[in-house]
């Protein structure tokens, strides 16, 4: 896939989706875009995630293949690294938590520089990917939690708490929430990185650009709505509460930007389980990270282990008995008289 084709096709698809989303502003179609599509998207999302997780979970893990990134547990006087080379469930949990909450492996992307007194690890430009990724994911999470305000009445305490942190700058009216901008910036960085680094451009597919375009459009439309082209926020909350309570009435007069925003979110939800975005679920099933490195101490069971044909010692001895006896090697069956006579 040529790079331009990848980029343009992903861009075209998102543009078309934006156009379709705008149709939500047509009063006659509002039940479809305001009720049917969101419910369908959520159902696809949930069913898709469950289907994927079941797909992974039901597949056997025949061998324990963790990647060890630290000293194994061995002799008592050798310092064991219980997280990078976990030999217990607690260690595995800690390793997975570090991986999922702090993107531990990505953080390993350090560089060395040669100073006066030898090589040194430097933390710098090589960790931009880590920084971009962590900002992107946490900003996304914060935005999602903030949006629970629309679906809860009274609004959950957690949402208030997150909003307090997110809006700590206390500027602007409505109060500026950092997460939306952080999401836009980090997503933009991840996109630029893909475009600017030749080897990344070379490996990128349309389905790498598409979700980025989609998420960036969602973030941009959200920011526009909150700060610039205001939509009727009370009506939006009413719609959200309606859907949450399975009441299928759409309040009138919500701006077109909202309909675009909502439709893109629906597309993202429906797309999520069937795309690389499933890495969020899949990472929990990664055998190089979620297994203990104690297979010499506790046997791992392969459910489909089957007997194989081996070359037995008996067959081996039969083939070499004479030479073995001659060389003074012990044998199980002595040479019989006839064989020696020959």
């Amino acid at each position: 896939m040529n790079f331009w084709v990848s980029l343009i096709s992903a861009g075209v698809v998102v543009t078309v989706l934006i156009a379709i989303g705008a149709l939500g502003a047509v009063p006659a179609l509002q039940v479809i875009f305001g009720v049917a599509v969101p419910i369908l998207a959520v159902l696809i999302f949930l069913a898709g995630i469950i289907w994927r997780v079941v797909q992974y979970a039901r597949r056997p893990v025949p061998f324990a293949i963790p990647t060890t990134c630290g000293q194994q547990k061995t002799l008592p006087w050798i310092k064991h690294n219980p997280v990078e080379s976990p030999n217990s469930t607690a260690g595995v949990v800690a390793r997975m938590a570090l991986e999922i909450l702090t993107f531990r492996s990505l953080f390993r992307n350090t560089a060395m520089s040669l100073g006066e007194d030898g090589p040194k690890i430097t933390y710098g430009s090589t960790q931009w990917l880590w920084l971009g990724a962590i900002v992107f994911h946490y900003a996304f999470l914060t935005v999602v939690i903030r949006h629970m305000r629309f679906f809860t009445e009274p609004v959950w305490g957690l949402v208030h708490l997150i909003e307090t942190f997110d809006g700590f700058l206390e500027v602007g009216l409505p109060g500026l929430m950092l997460s939306g901008f952080a999401l836009l910036a980090a997503g933009g960085y991840l996109l630029l990185r893909r475009l600017a680094i030749p080897q990344l451009r070379y490996i990128s597919l349309p389905n790498d650009y598409f979700p980025l375009f989609l998420i960036l459009s969602i973030a941009a439309s959200g920011i526009l709505m909150r700060y610039f082209v205001k939509v009727d926020i009370v009506a939006v909350k009413e719609l959200a509460m309606n859907i949450a309570n399975f009441k299928f009435a759409v309040p009138e007069g919500i701006g077109v930007l909202f309909w675009i925003h909502l439709f893109l979110v629906c597309v993202l939800l429906a797309y999520f389980p069937f795309s690389k975005l499933i890495h969020s679920g899949g990472v929990f099933f990664s055998p190089t990270r979620n297994m203990a490195t104690n297979t010499r101490e506790y046997r791992h069971i392969n459910p489909w282990n089957y007997p194989v044909k081996i070359h037995t010692y008996e067959a081996y001895e039969d083939e070499f008995r004479e030479k073995m006896v001659e060389a003074g090697l012990p044998v199980d069956k002595p040479l019989d008289e006839e064989a020696t006579a020959q």
Partner: peptide, 16 residues
């Protein structure tokens, strides 16, 4: 190759 030459030019890590 183009996609490698970027890495070869940019990475200053003498061991990497």
């Amino acid at each position: 190759p183009t996609d490698a030459s970027n890495f070869l030019k940019k990475s200053k890590d003498p061991f990497h």
